[in-house]
Design a protein around this nucleic acid. Structure first.
Lengths: 234, 234
DNA sequence: TTTCTCCTGTTGAAAATTCAACATACATTT
DNA sequence: AAATGTATGTTGAATTTTCAACAGGAGAAA
């Protein structure tokens, strides 16, 4: 368990909780660690919600498939990030999405009730945990607004550029690596994969971006100044 | 203030708080009531977030306009519903959306800090308020998932039907009134208004729905059974 | 190396959306 | 009654997306 402390310290759920206390907090919460292989399902659509998950290593994706096989990637999550907290808090009987391991992943699972209900031994951390959970959820709501800002754009081109600009902002650099393959990026942006390919090539041809696999670089345009100092990357 | 008690009692933020205690809770929170005319702006994009809003009467819309004037209606909210709680909790310096009065509206505004930070007089309600706020946010997250399930559909027809089915479910009836005009519905579904008109007429022609202004009725199809007992409405 | 699979890019045709412009209906104001 | 403004439906052209099918390349496995 101790080997994950760096990840857990960066996890907003444990903000303001010291490393020394972490062990006792985790055992009070009954935290368990599980591993999943690439493509394995961590939580299936339709299941009741109970656990809050924390990504310890690897990546997971929140997905929703419709009856015709179209996949929508709601979000991708990396180390220190939480999933399932909203469903568990709302005590929904059937979660509307699935959570899958997009690559080999380790997650920590915590029964949400153990967070929101103070324990009998009255350890003094629940108050802080609840406040932290509140902030996590607020942050998740903001993330949803960002996703909406992307997918509400009408064309593939606008969606892609909106996404890339947000990624550049997150990475504080004009060049960055995205966590999605082409098909996954299309599923995230809610567009057709082949159409996305065409747009990417076109934007590169216009000198708006440079691309190499999962690497992207936003090139400064004459009108809009660059976001941050750029440096070559290939 | 007392005239709003029925609305406030139905507000999930005050769940498990008795009507007798409501007055003292509200004064402890420094709750204020404001009125806004139709189309007036309650909160402007770019402003810092501070207040949680509760709709007392009328309707508000959470909107985002892009630089080309395209409007996206993120959500519409009626009496007893909250807005702004995520931004206030996350203490964002510039909210990414605006909140406008889609019709004449009264709202109660509460400083979010007063909720999340226990007061000096140590009134015993903060713990309950925070738990309630947690559930509200969890519910908002679910609402976002629903909205994504609608807007991630690729065609206007699928978006409209997904929306109408959710409304029918909410109203527990195949016939219901939607809170949006045609333009607003198009902005909510993220599609073109005139194209939406065409689809609505087509669906009515196919016998899938009946429409009259804001009234919609989902007609049972041979394959899928109806959602609930239907009754004529015009 | 060879084979196989998966991922990505390409293409063209079909379908759907957007856009602009106009017609109609309804309500409100003058 | 006339005028005005707003909301909605209609239409056709231009644009964009989707869909299906295929080709090339990278990597894994035999």
């Amino acid at each position: 368990m101790e080997s994950y402390f760096d990840i857990l310290r960066a996890c907003p759920l444990f903000h303001e909780i010291s490393v020394q206390d972490l062990s006792s907090v985790l055992s009070c919460l009954g935290a368990k660690v599980s591993s999943f292989h690439k493509k394995e399902t961590i939580l299936s659509e339709g299941e009741p919600a109970r656990y809050v998950g924390i990504v310890l290593s690897g990546h997971v994706q929140i997905i929703r498939d419709d009856y015709f096989g179209n996949r929508n990637i709601v979000a991708g999550l990396g180390p220190s990030e939480l999933f399932g907290e909203s469903f568990a808090c709302a005590e929904v009987l059937a979660v509307p999405v699935s959570v899958i391991a997009s690559e080999a992943v380790e997650v920590m699972l915590i029964d949400c009730m153990k967070i929101t209900h103070s324990c009998s031994s009255a350890c003094g951390f629940h108050q802080q945990l609840i406040i932290n959970l509140l902030k996590v959820m607020a942050g998740k709501n903001l993330a949803f607004h960002q996703k909406l800002a992307i997918t509400s754009k009408r064309t593939t081109r606008e969606k892609l550029l909106a996404y890339l600009m947000l990624e550049a902002q997150k990475n504080r650099s004009n060049s960055f690596q995205i966590p999605y393959s082409r098909q996954e990026l299309a599923d995230y942006l809610e567009v057709d994969r082949s159409g996305l390919s065409v747009i990417i090539r076109k934007l590169a041809g216009e000198g708006v971006i440079q691309v190499n696999q999962r690497w992207f670089k936003l090139l400064p345009s004459p009108s809009s100044p660059e976001i941050s100092p750029d440096h070559s990357w290939w």
